[in-house]
C-alpha cells in the first residue's frame, strides 16, 4: 500500500513535469519560464537535502496540528452528536468559526503570536479541523440500531460505549478521513509558512518565488509529495492495525 502510494505519486509528478517540458518545447520557452531537465537535476542536487529538512520541519508541525484537530473534532463530534440544545450550540459554533477564510485570519494570528511554531500549528489545525469535524459529527450522530438496541434494552448503554460502537463500526470511514486530513494539515502548514513564517518548506517556496526559480519550486513539490505519500501510507497502515487490534 505504501509502495503503491509512492509509485503512483512518482507517476503523477513525472507526468506533470513531462507536460511542462512539452509546453516548453512547443512554445520555445526559456529556462526562466520552465526549467529544462538538466536545470531541474542541478537544482535537485543543490537543494534536495535542505528542502528535505524543511519538509520534515513542516511535517512535524502538520502532524501535531492534525493530532490536535482530530482530538478537537472528536470532542466536538462527541458532544455535538446529542440532539440537545448544547449539542446544537457546539455544532453551530464550530461551523461558524469555519466561515472565515484562514488566509484572512492568518495575518491576525501572526501579529498576535509571531511567526514561530505556534502560528504555524494553529493555522494547520484550523485548516484540517473542519472536514474532520463534519465526518466525525456525521459518524457519531448516526446510530447503529442493531447493536445499540441490545445495550439500551438491557440498560447498559453509556455514552462511552455508544461512542466506541459508532467509532468501531465506522473505522474504515474514520481512517479515510484522517488520511485525507493529513493532506489538509500539510497544506495548512505550508500556507502558514508561505504567508509569514520564517521556517519550513512553505517559507522556502516563498523565497524561490521571489527568485523566480521554478526549478526550486518543482523540487519542493516533489519533496512535499513524496513525504506526504509516505505519511498517508503510514496512517493507512496504522488504521488497519487499530482495526485488527480492536477486532481481537
Amino acid at each position: 500500500m505504501l509502495l503503491r502510494r509512492i509509485y503512483q505519486f512518482m507517476m503523477i509528478y513525472g507526468l506533470g513535469v513531462l507536460c511542462l517540458l512539452a509546453l516548453k518545447m512547443v512554445a520555445d520557452l526559456s529556462d526562466y519560464v520552465i526549467p529544462g531537465l538538466d536545470t531541474l537535476w542541478h537544482t535537485f542536487r543543490e537543494v534536495a537535502w535542505r528542502y528535505t529538512l524543511d519538509v520534515w520541519d513542516t511535517l512535524r508541525v502538520a502532524m501535531i496540528g492534525q493530532v490536535l484537530s482530530i482530538g478537537l473534532a472528536l470532542l466536538v463530534g462527541i458532544v455535538g452528536r446529542q440532539a440537545t440544545w448544547f449539542g446544537s450550540f457546539i455544532k453551530v459554533a464550530a461551523y461558524n468559526v469555519q466561515a472565515y477564510p484562514i488566509v484572512a485570519i492568518a495575518p491576525i494570528i501572526f501579529i498576535l503570536l509571531g511567526d514561530g511554531f505556534l502560528s504555524r500549528l494553529l493555522i494547520a489545525a484550523m485548516i484540517c479541523y473542519f472536514p474532520l469535524l463534519l465526518s466525525v459529527v456525521g459518524i457519531m450522530s448516526q446510530p447503529i440500531p442493531d447493536i445499540e438496541h441490545f445495550y439500551r434494552q438491557t440498560g447498559r448503554m453509556r455514552w462511552q460505549l455508544e461512542v466506541k460502537i459508532r467509532a468501531f463500526e465506522n473505522l474504515s470511514k474514520l481512517t479515510t478521513v484522517i488520511v485525507g486530513s493529513a493532506t489538509l494539515a500539510m497544506a495548512g502548514t505550508i500556507v502558514a509558512e508561505f504567508i509569514a513564517a520564517g521556517a519550513g518548506i512553505g517559507y522556502s517556496i516563498r523565497i524561490a518565488l521571489y527568485q523566480s526559480d521554478l526549478a526550486k519550486i518543482l523540487v519542493a513539490l516533489f519533496m512535499i509529495g513524496i513525504t506526504l505519500s509516505v505519511y498517508q501510507g503510514v496512517l493507512e497502515r496504522a488504521g488497519h492495525w487499530v482495526k485488527q487490534v480492536w477486532s481481537g
Binding site: 512554445a27 520557452l29 526559456s30 529556462d31 526562466y32 519560464v33 526549467p35 536545470t39 527568485q211 523566480s212
Partner: peptide
C-alpha cells in the same frame, strides 16, 4: 518577464535582479 515570454503581455516593469536572473536562464 514570464508574461512577455508567454505572450500574455507586450511590455512590463521588472527589477534589475529579475532581469538579470531571467537573462542567466536564457530569457530573451
Amino acid at each position: 518577464i514570464r508574461e512577455l515570454e508567454l505572450g500574455h503581455a507586450h511590455f512590463g516593469v521588472a527589477s534589475a535582479d529579475q532581469v538579470i536572473h531571467a537573462l542567466a536562464k536564457g530569457s530573451p
